[in-house]
Amino acid sequence: MNRIVGLLIVIVSLAYTIGALKWSLWTEGNPGPGLFPVIIGIIALIAGVMCIVEGVIPVNGKQTLIQGLKWSAFLVALTVLVVFLMEFLGIAIGSGLAFAAVLTAGGYRRKFLLILIPIITTVSIYLVFGWWLHLPYVWIQ
């Protein structure tokens, strides 16, 4: 795992640097658009190689990573849902529902607060952004 992460960094840095070479580094006495990315790419490449050599990438538990990635997937799905809901219900209700989803998925079991917190969130977002600042997509379209 340690070497795989180091190798991935080297591959990405290499791809980034090679990608920058298609733009000129120096044209008509002026630095071109490729110069800066090439410098950054080379620095990242050296640092990536040094990471592999020194073996300095500590690896935490595989189980933890899988659990974290599951939560990442959950939040991405929730983001897509919020964006979808925004178009019809507005961000105030969308956010309230998203809050309820996070609480439920996170194992929160106090029913009264489980209902109250999303409602407060919805009302607060509506009052600040919709009623006060008149921003779009806050309430039901």
């Binding site: 998203a98 996070v102 998925a105 996170g106 977002i125």
Partner: peptide, 15 residues
């Protein structure tokens, strides 16, 4: 509770 903070951070980040 941690889910409340997580939910709050998510909602504030998105909105």
């Amino acid at each position: 509770a941690k889910p409340i903070i997580a939910g709050l951070v998510f909602v504030l980040a998105v909105s």
